[in-house]
Design a protein around this nucleic acid. Structure first.
Lengths: 188, 188
DNA sequence: AAATATCTACCTACTGATAGGTAGATTAGA
DNA sequence: TCTAATCTACCTATCAGTAGGTAGATATTT
């Protein structure tokens, strides 16, 4: 009767992602995941031997999807503002779907209490997203006039503002706040 | 031998604050607090009946101290950039002391999994800090030229960038990143 | 038959919380 | 001033519930 469906693994990951984004890494349990998916907790262990494994896999998948959705930063446009809007839009989609914070932003907030492998994946999200933005900015006319250090600084500033914006918009329960925060690139 | 010291309550709060800032609200327990302070967990309950009480008290104290350290935004200077630097400096101090994130930033990240009273205090931090900054900006020559909506937007942008910056600096284990992020106010 | 997926049944460790007790300081009344 | 009552600041012992994790049986698919 319990017909095996190959989607169990991804349903576990989906639910884990949702719960982490809502309550943090320490805010979900195998039992809750199991109950939500409709299996026993031991079955969750079958797919993900430990909680750290599950956490790391979810974070990796999140980052892969996020960067996939962003596409190639050199393709999309030669306009720096458009690049930043693209990034903003991608975060906004996560926030508006269910009032949810960026997964890796949540993980970053509690990074010192995370298993090594999970912390590493969280860090990877910011490495990769920052690399995406820097690469894109360098190709724009705007970026061409700036030093490497200044590009680095601007990229970090944009990323920081977007992550912080999600944080604040959600704690205030005002998702619209995030829309005010399409970052401006500044000269000088 | 265990001389009764009236500081027990504040030592509990100190340790709780540290642990929350490191691992989040779900990342500490009464037993750990008790062990760190050198009493039994029931004694922690004596001062703070529930975990939510302790969390809320710690968040409130953090916010009070933070705003106290900022002082009156209208006193400090007529220079908008100086106001923002003051805010940046206050966050930087928290980060550099022990590589720790802003307490209410951590709480904000897991806000949907928090007891009501704790979430309310976390929200209060952003309300009050934003009010401080907006009040200050309005008094500056720079702020005088802007609409109320634009002040609101800039204030939010600054706060978001600082919170996000702490998050990223810490997950990357590079506190120096935060120093790159003294936010620029932008015209227009 | 072998491999895959899921189950039952359990473990140990720890969670927040409560009950009830106590030594010692403080306060109030006679 | 002595005494009785009360309060402070803890304690021990225990609770029911939940955490992550495991061994081994069972069912299903190939």
């Amino acid at each position: 009767m319990p017909k095996p469906h190959a989607e169990t693994e991804s349903r576990i990951m989906d639910l884990a992602e949702n719960m982490i984004r809502r309550n943090g890494y320490n805010g979900f349990s195998f039992r809750e995941i199991a109950a939500g998916v409709g299996v026993k907790s031991s079955s969750v262990h079958y797919y993900f031997p430990t909680k750290a494994d599950l956490g790391a896999c979810v974070a990796r998948r999140y980052t892969d999807r996020f960067l996939d959705a962003l596409g190639d930063p050199e393709d999309s446009s030669e306009d720096a503002q458009h690049l930043v809007s693209k990034l903003h839009g991608e975060f906004a989609r996560a926030l508006s779907s269910d009032g949810q914070m960026c997964l890796c932003g949540v993980l970053a907030a509690e990074v010192t209490g995370l298993p090594e492998t999970v912390a590493e994946e969280a860090k990877g999200f910011f490495d990769r997203t920052d690399a995406w933005l820097q690469k894109g900015l360098k190709k724009t006319a705007w970026g061409g006039r700036l030093s490497a250090e200044e590009i680095e600084r601007q990229s970090l500033a944009v990323l920081a503002q977007l992550e912080g914006g999600m944080l604040i918009a959600r704690v205030q329960d005002r998702p619209a706040l995030f829309d005010l925060l399409k970052p401006q690139l500044s000269d000088k």
